[in-house]
Amino acid sequence: MNEGNLSNKSKEFLQDLRLYLFSSGKNSEEIEEIADELEVHLSEAEKNGKSIDKIIGKSPKEYMEMVSKEMLIDYRTWIKYICLIVFGSFSFTIFTDLLEGNLSYSVLEMVGHVVIGAIFITSIITGFKYISTTNKSVKIQGLIILIIMLLQITLFIGLIYLNRAIDTPIIHFGNTGSLIIGVVAGLFIIGMSLWAKTWILIIIVALFTVPDYLLGLTPLKNETQLIISPWITFGGFAIYLWASYKLEKK
């Protein structure tokens, strides 16, 4: 349905409801069916001069929780998302590693990426639920998402240093294996960018890859490069978020 006839309060609630149900692992089609049905009730209520509270009650959070409990969790879709996130976390480091030669990863690295993926999923779910159930400003919502993203970057950097400090068995992939993994990772990043209609994944990969490559061409010591590289990554990401915010505001 067209939400143009609804009040801003009703529109915001429908958006929050969709976000809450999605972060609760519900099926996208069922979410839209619920939202469309509720939209009809809200539209009729507003035409009759009734408040949105007559439909959803005085606690939007309790209403969202009630609707969520009546819906089944879409495990199939969430397993797909989990696989994409875990593989995506590997993709961000694969291109940097390819610049150094054939791919090889320690057990700690592989387990670490899975753990970071799990933390990312948990933080996204928690963050989305918090945003959808609290009436925060757009700036606060953006700050929450930024904190989640910075947490992931920090964990990745921490994993790099931890892997250098702790020795675990290493798996070598060789020339052919490295080439195949690189091509698959590239197709994955491009495909996800086209699906999501955003350059964010490609930009993140570039921010992780290009600084290390360019610094490697300088006479700077490795220790100095390790200190400078994260700051370039953080700075580049901050500039991208700032530019995106300005464009969105316009």
Rank of each mutant, 00 (worst) to 15 (best):
F22E: 10
K197G: 09
F22G: 09
G112C: 08
G127E: 13
E100A: 15
E32C: 00
T218Q: 11
I73L: 01
G174D: 07
M149L: 10
N163Y: 05
V40F: 13
A118I: 01
L103D: 09
T77W: 07
S24Y: 00
Y213M: 04
I166E: 03
L146A: 15
W199N: 15
L84E: 04
A165P: 03
T154L: 15
E33N: 13
L17Y: 06
S244D: 14
G186P: 02
L98M: 11
G117V: 00
I153R: 07
Y63P: 01
Y20F: 11
F188G: 14
K61W: 12
N48K: 11
I144P: 08
I181M: 14
G216V: 04
W199I: 08
G236K: 03
S244V: 01
S91P: 07
Y240N: 05
V40K: 14
I204N: 12
D36Q: 06
G25V: 00
E46F: 07
K61P: 00
E39L: 15
N48E: 12
I171L: 15
W78F: 15
V115P: 11
G191H: 05
I73F: 00
I73M: 00
T224Q: 08
L201D: 06
T209R: 07
G49A: 13
G101C: 10
E29P: 00
L6F: 02
I116A: 14
K50H: 11
P219A: 12
K250P: 02
L103K: 02
E109P: 02
K249D: 07
W78C: 03
M192P: 02
T224H: 11
L241R: 08
P219E: 06
E70V: 02
I55H: 11
G186K: 02
N175A: 12
V138I: 13
G49C: 08
E70F: 01
H113D: 09
V40R: 09
I145P: 03
E46Q: 14
L179H: 06
G49W: 00
Y240I: 05
V205M: 12
K58W: 13
G112F: 00
T198F: 12
Y240P: 02
E46R: 08
L14D: 13
L99N: 10
F173G: 14
I202H: 06
L42V: 07
P230S: 09
L226Y: 04
L226I: 06
F13Y: 11
A35K: 12
L220S: 13
P211I: 00
K69H: 04
L162I: 04
K69E: 15
R76M: 00
E109H: 06
E37Y: 05
L151Y: 05
F13L: 13
W199G: 05
M71A: 04
F92Y: 13
I148V: 12
